[in-house]
């Protein structure tokens, strides 16, 4: 007889409904991951009690850990479902939605706040226009290497889910935004509008609310040096504050 795998899923029909656990038993397949298991549930939405239920709802897109969509809490830890191979996971597997974002349905949550926060932090480069005015500024390899480390942030939410300072109801911006501010402040053109990015980080919920638990860097699927970004933004805001208080 072929092996099966048990998956316990924390479900919720809508944001106001009570959550409940539902267990599914699925055939184990080679190279299966959490996504392929959820797909199998779609094809046969019957729980362990033999009851036909609504298929589980979750978000996913690229399935190769570059889009950030399928973030969920797997066996207690936040990560991308596509990169969670079934074989090495402890069984039964538990799947929960992230807890730091408003629930939508089942494993879906609403991460709109992350994108709004990027807007607050002026996370872009102010170009004059898209017309052809020639090359961009030359950038040394070391700076570009650092920048590339930071620019891979896919706004997946792992850092915020694991951060003890980030909660559903506060307004902490969190490591992803701090790191993006650092990224743009590093760019020669971006640096021209440095202050526009530092100001929002010095407001309530800004960099000073970081508690240095450093879970963010530990769970980041892209290994972004978020704690370095936090320290660097700490330095930039400190200088900015001193400048504001005593120089200007």
């Amino acid at each position: 007889m072929s092996q099966t795998v048990l998956i316990k899923i924390r479900r919720k029909d809508n944001p106001n409904a009570a959550p409940y656990w539902e267990t599914f038993e699925l055939p184990e397949k080679p190279f299966a991951n959490v996504i392929s298991c959820l797909q199998d549930i779609q094809k046969n939405p019957v729980n362990i009690g033999g009851v036909r239920v609504k298929p589980v709802v979750w978000d996913c897109n690229c399935l190769e850990e570059v889009c950030g969509s399928c973030t969920m809490v797997i066996n207690g830890k936040v990560r991308q479902a596509c990169a969670a191979l079934i074989d090495p996971l402890e069984k039964p597997i538990t799947l929960e939605p992230m807890s730091k974002f408003p629930a939508v349905r089942d494993l879906q949550v609403d991460r709109a706040r992350m994108f709004k926060d990027l807007e607050q932090a002026h996370a872009w480069i102010d170009i004059d226009g898209t017309h052809d005015i020639g090359e961009g500024p030359a950038i040394d390899q070391e700076t570009r290497h650092k920048a590339y480390e930071l620019s891979q942030c896919m706004t997946c939410g792992c850092c915020l889910e694991s951060c003890p300072q980030y909660t559903l109801d506060n307004n902490f911006l969190g490591p992803a935004v701090f790191s993006q501010a650092r990224y743009f402040n590093m760019h020669p053109t971006g640096a021209m509008h440095k202050d526009k990015r530092l100001e929002p980080l010095m407001k309530e919920g800004g960099i000073a609310n970081c508690g240095n638990a450093q879970n963010c860097a530990a769970v980041c699927p892209k290994h972004i040096p978020l704690t370095e970004s936090i320290a660097e933004i700490g330095r930039q805001t400190t200088f900015h504050l001193i400048k504001k208080l005593f120089v200007e």
């Binding site: 207690g76 830890k77 694991s162 003890p164 909660t167 240095n212 638990a213 450093q214 879970n215 530990a218």
Partner: peptide
């Protein structure tokens, strides 16, 4: 005030630094 703002999660994310964060509070 600072401690009140956070929510411990050290049993879920038992990393050394998270222990330090918790112990600090």
């Amino acid at each position: 005030y600072v401690a009140y703002q956070g929510k411990f999660n050290v049993f879920r994310y038992a990393y050394p630094r998270n222990w330090m964060y918790t112990l600090q509070r």
